[in-house]
């Protein structure tokens, strides 16, 4: 059964009592609760979307132990997926997603886990599109290994992460986009904020294998540090094995721009307000992957813990 504690946590942005709320809550290999729409099926750890009409789906990982799940998105299915990860200490989530030809999947992923790990692989066939927003504001250490494989022509993926490491939390994220077919498009924008002796490492990896002409791999990794006691590292890697491609990377670790602060303060905002607004602007675009007002509001409220 889903814990009361989790229900209270997700209530501000997910109302599972609504008749139109479709969800799967996964607590262990055998324990789950669900309400599925037509043409969506779950059996023995495999969730399959065969829907012809667009659907919004809530996926909740209430991990008391290691969780394994596979998700299949059939050709031309359209899914908005809102994920909540609540993994207990030392739990691992192993998730694999398969997007068939022309599937369009937008995911907003909210991490509320304790010190845990998540290993995620996403495979995209031709013309499949995936937009993924990772909100990583959890209050504990975390390791996220998120890999995307573009296995069909014209497949495209856009990843945006918003990470907060605070209060001596140590977080590590590895985001890989690998181009295994020509004319594939990958973009990742990883943004982090580190404060109060927090530690954050972001590894952004773009790989274009040989023969994948016309592909584009772009990435930005930025970490803003609030004080000198933090540790942060933003590492971009590009492995390109073809000539006819576009590739770019940018990485920056630094403190908040003084000129930005001055500009906002010169309009009457206090330093604290200015810092909050800048941080908000820095992390907020992660919610743009999904058009969901409740989610946006919830994320805005979550940002208050950045505290500036």
């Amino acid at each position: 059964m889903i814990s009361e504690q989790l229900l209270t946590k997700i209530k501000p942005f997910i109302d599972l009592q609504q008749p139109q709320s479709y969800y799967l809550i996964l607590s262990s290999k055998t324990a789950f609760q669900m309400q599925l729409p037509q043409d969506v099926f779950y059996q023995e750890g495999i969730l399959t979307f065969k829907n012809k009409q667009p659907v919004t789906f809530y996926m909740i990982y209430d991990g008391q132990e290691d969780l394994h799940i596979e998700m299949h998105f059939q050709s031309y299915s359209q899914v908005d997926l809102i994920e909540v990860k609540q993994l207990e200490v030392n739990c691992q989530l192993h998730k694999t997603m398969y997007l068939e030809e022309g599937a369009t999947v937008h995911v907003f992923s909210e991490n509320m886990s304790k010190s845990a790990q998540s290993y995620e692989d996403v495979y995209l066939k031709s013309y499949a599109t995936c937009q993924y927003g990772y909100s990583e504001l959890s209050d504990d250490a975390f390791e996220g290994i998120y890999h995307f494989y573009l296995d069909g022509e014209e497949a495209s993926v856009k990843v945006r992460t918003a990470i907060l490491a605070k209060d001596r939390e140590s977080k590590h994220y590895e985001i890989l986009i690998q181009h295994n077919q020509p004319m594939t498009h990958g973009q990742m924008d990883n943004y982090g904020v580190v404060k109060d002796e927090g530690k954050l490492v972001i590894d952004g990896i773009g790989t274009i294998t040989k023969g994948q002409h016309g592909s584009a791999s772009h990435q930005t990794n930025k970490i803003m540090m609030f004080d000198a006691s933090c540790q942060a590292s933003a590492n971009p890697y590009l492995y390109i094995d073809d000539y006819d491609v576009q590739a770019s990377h940018a990485a920056a670790v630094g403190k908040m721009d003084e000129e930005h602060l001055y500009y906002l303060q010169s309009r009457g905002l206090s330093k604290k307000q200015a810092m909050q607004l800048i941080t908000y602007g820095y992390l907020m675009p992660v919610v743009e992957v999904i058009d969901n007002e409740m989610m946006k509001k919830h994320f805005e409220q979550s940002l208050s813990k950045v505290g500036a």
């Binding site: 721009d257 000129e259 930005h260 001055y262 500009y263 906002l264 303060q265 010169s266 309009r267 009457g268 905002l269 206090s270 330093k271 200015a274 607004l277 800048i278 908000y280 602007g281 820095y282 992390l283 907020m284 675009p285």
Partner: peptide
């Protein structure tokens, strides 16, 4: 006064090179 106190006291500077601030 701090910069923001000056602004709230009624001073305004129209800048030669206004800052670009992404996300806001």
């Amino acid at each position: 006064m701090s910069v923001d106190e000056r602004a709230r006291a009624g001073l305004f500077l129209g800048m030669q090179y206004p800052q670009e601030i992404p996300g806001i």
